[in-house]
Structures are given as structure tokens and as C-alpha cells.
Design a protein around this nucleic acid. Structure first.
Lengths: 253, 253
DNA sequence: CGAGGGCATCAGGGTTGCGTCAAGGAGCTT
DNA sequence: AAGCTCCTTGACGCAACCCTGATGCCCTCG
């Protein structure tokens, strides 16, 4: 299993001084995801000229892998990828990180934008785009992420009864992996990310089921029961998934 | 139904004269800044329909004033204002707050966008805009601002006898978490947020039970007793939840 | 000194919200 | 095409919460 990767910029796992580009501390790392080489080239050139540290990925799978390995400070993501839907990439990333995601797309459709933004994207730029504008939006995304960036939690959360690996999307209990459905996992994710804090039922519903859901509290009851049955030692008397009547739920380690 | 407590009994606002918008806790507050009435109207209607709490300002000066007074969760700002340059408004706001700013403008020029974004704006939408897209961008801006907390003051309040964590919605006493009902918590929250100051009975009633409540002081007596029983060392002689006869209550550390 | 209003406390009843179980239907795999 | 998993939806019992009225105390004012 992967080691818990540090979030701070200086503590990257690659230790040796012989990295290909000379990496300065404090440099902002960008991950560019696009399958069109000329777009990637243009972005890489412009970003490097402005002293960004740049990684590039041609498809969604590589993007997810690189994001986990390199922990970029911001991601520029083209929605039209060869291997998977761009929205799926966003969801995959949002499972374990809040890194700013700037979506790039040729589609001008309003629905596409709404879908991507609600999936967790931070900004949406349509092609063709002005390089100046893109860079300004990138600066804005990085700037507002800075204060929160330091407080980003680690990817592993342990309790007495089970272990959650947010990056690997795995839950281990008594040495065995627990199978969770997508919805169960998503709900667990939100709760674990806010460990110790109360999460209102409205927030849970909107995060997991979408912005238009806010009152269907019966969904929560059903899925909270599933989680407890799969993870709690005594589902009838939960220790980790606590109900705060009338307010919401709370995950306690 | 909404997550927060409060029976929806007198939803019709019988309160005459000062018709404050019915403010529910947990509602997102938006400040709309634009000098074109039809734009403002369209935005206000759409936002209110989606259960946002909306303020509006026709010029920069009013905007700055309202932002300081009402502490909105997000600001929609038109750059073309009659009294001052939109960028100046952004800078004025950024001097003291990190509230998300979504810029609205008729200018498509790249320079304008770069200038606004670098001044501290979070997003830039050109007119004419799609309402769906704008709302999605608004959701995105609010969402990523959430984890930092309310964004304002510190969230922990300590006394000799107990500790209140406003962000986690937790109260700790003698090392054990105290369970509060929604109404109890709501009342405590209002008092703690005004620590040291007197809060009138009317204000407490309207904040916790809704704008149409203002005279049912017996509610206060009952719930104040609950809070004291759960939190005070000697409930009969309260040290922290002080009664000011005929006036209101005061929380003292 | 007596009367009155405001406050604290308690207990009971009506209602809401939560946990649980089970069945129907959509989407995907085999 | 059949089978499976997963999501949705409804019903029901039960616990918890909110409201309400009654009682008694204390302080204030006549």
C-alpha cells in the first residue's frame, strides 16, 4: 500500500538531487491533462517560462496516477480525453484531494459546464482560449487555495475498528478489504474528510447526490445504515458514525 | 424540510414594518452588485428561488458597506458601476476579507479579465451569461470556500467549565462531549457569538425560532434552563448564562 | 407590608425524525 | 437474454424532541 504522502512542497518523496528539471522550493506545480500535443506544448512552454513546475498527462488514467504521485498545486484538465469522461476524472480526484481543477473544453454547452463545475471543478475555460486569461485564472485558483493548502489532511484515516485510504479508495477492516458501493464510498468520503466535525444532512445530500438534493433525508438514513453495518463493530450502537438528531451526522475516530 | 430546527409554523411574516427577509440558518448569503435593475432582478429572483439569502447594491460604495455589514458568503460583482471602478471594489474587499468574488462584465477583453482576476476576483463571467452556468460557478465558489470555515472569527470558545467548538458543533465538558438538541445548540450559538454582550429576548427568539416569534419568552426560559443544566457547574447559580431581568441574556466566559 | 410581574423548574402529550426491513426497477456484466 | 448489483422508495415501530401549562420563588413597586 502506498505510504502516506506529505502534502508540503518540500517533502516530496523523490529525494535525490538529480531530478530532471531543477526543482525549486516554492515553485508551483501544475499538472496539464490534454490529448492534443500542440495544446500541451503551448501550455508547457508558457508555464515553464513563468517558473511553474509542469507535469503532463495525455489521458485520464495517467492524470489520476500523476496527481497521486506528484501532488500538483493545480490541475489543468481537458474534458475531451481518449480513455475516459473528463467528469469522471474530476470525481476521481475529488475523492481524495481538493486541489484546484481548471477545466479546458471545446464544448460551449451550458450543461457541460454545469456538470463539470458541480462535479468539483473550480473553473471552466472554453477553447480557443487566451493564454493571458488562462494564466490569470490559474493564478486565481492557486492563490485562493494557498491558505487551505497547508491544512490539507493526510490520505489515511485510522480508527480502532477500520482503516480508510482515501487515495486508494479502500477500506480495511480486520485485515480484509470491505466492498463499498459508489454511493456508500462517496458518503464515507465526505464524512471522513470532515472527521470530528458535524456535517449537516443538507451538505451531505448535496455533496453526494448533487446540488438539487437537500431534503431527501431518507437516502441518508438508508446509506448510513449500510455504512454502519459494514464498518461498525456493533451497528446498533455506532461509535464512529454518530447521529445528531435534526442536524446531521458526524464521523469520530 | 430544512436541516435546521424550527417548526415551520408561522411562515407568513406577520411582522409588519421592518420586513427583514426570512433568514434561515445555513442559508447561503449572496451580495449582488449591479447598476442595471433588470440584471439585479433576474439574479435576485433566481437566487431566492434556490433558497439563497440575497442582498443587492447598485454601486460600489453601497457594496462595500453591505459587505462589511452583512458578511455575505459570496459576492456577484458587475464591473461597470456608476461611482467607482470595479477593480477598486475588489481591492477594497480584499483588504479585509477572502469572500469569493464572482465578476460579471460586458467586456470581453482579455486585459480586463486578467486585471480583475489578479486584483483578487475568483471568477469572471461575460455578459450575456447563462443563468445555469452562473449558478454553477456560484456553487463552485461557495463550495470551495466552505472548508475554511465560516471565514470570519475563530471558532473555539473556552470557559472554565466547558469548551464550545463552533465549527464542529461540539461542546466538551470535563472531557466528555455534551449532547445538545438542535434548538439548544442554536440558542447557544447565538449567545456565544455575542459573548460578553447582552442579547435581547426578542433577538434570541427571532434568531432561533424565526422572525415571527418575538414575545414567547417562555421558550427562552425552558431552553435556557436546559443549557444551564447541561453546561453550568451549578445550574441554580449560573456563572456563564446570565439573566438580565426584563432585557435578555448574556453569555460570559 | 402586600400585590404583581417576571423567572426557574418540572412533567406530560403531541409530533417529528430516525432506524430498519423489504420490494421494485434501472443499468451493467456474463 | 438472464442474472446480478446497486439505487430508490415506501411502510412501520420507536425514541427523542418541542411545546405547553402549572407551580413556586424572588425581586420590584405600590
Amino acid at each position: 500500500m502506498t505510504a502516506t504522502a506529505g502534502r508540503a512542497r518540500g517533502t516530496e518523496s523523490r529525494v535525490s538531487g538529480a531530478d530532471k528539471p531543477e526543482r525549486q522550493v516554492g515553485m508551483t506545480r501544475v499538472l496539464v491533462v490534454d490529448d492534443e500535443p500542440q495544446i500541451v506544448r503551448a501550455l508547457v512552454i508558457n508555464l515553464k517560462a513563468r517558473k511553474y513546475d509542469v507535469d503532463a498527462a495525455p489521458d485520464g488514467a495517467t492524470a489520476l496516477q500523476l496527481a497521486a504521485a506528484r501532488h500538483p498545486d493545480v490541475i489543468v484538465l481537458d474534458l475531451g480525453l481518449p480513455d475516459m469522461d473528463g467528469v469522471e476524472v474530476i470525481k476521481g480526484l475529488r475523492g481524495w484531494t481538493r486541489v484546484p481543477i481548471l477545466v479546458l473544453s471545446a464544448r460551449h454547452s451550458s450543461d457541460e459546464k454545469v456538470e463539470a463545475l458541480d462535479a468539483g471543478a473550480d473553473d471552466y475555460v472554453t477553447k480557443p482560449f487566451g493564454m493571458d486569461e488562462l494564466l490569470a485564472r490559474l493564478r486565481a485558483a492557486v492563490r485562493r487555495a494557498e491558505p487551505t493548502g497547508a491544512g490539507e489532511d493526510d490520505v489515511m484515516v485510522d480508527t480502532e475498528d477500520f482503516t480508510v485510504d482515501l487515495a486508494a479508495k479502500k477500506v480495511n477492516r480486520n485485515g480484509r478489504d470491505v466492498r463499498l458501493t459508489p454511493t456508500e464510498w462517496h458518503l464515507l468520503e465526505v464524512l471522513v474528510r470532515n472527521a470530528g466535525r458535524l456535517v449537516s444532512q443538507k451538505q451531505l445530500l448535496q455533496e453526494v447526490w448533487g446540488p438539487s438534493y437537500g431534503t431527501e433525508t431518507n437516502y441518508l438514513r438508508v446509506y448510513m445504515a449500510q455504512l454502519r453495518r459494514k464498518l461498525e463493530a456493533d451497528p446498533a450502537h455506532p461509535r464512529h458514525f454518530i447521529t445528531e438528531p435534526g442536524m446531521g451526522y458526524r464521523f469520530e475516530r
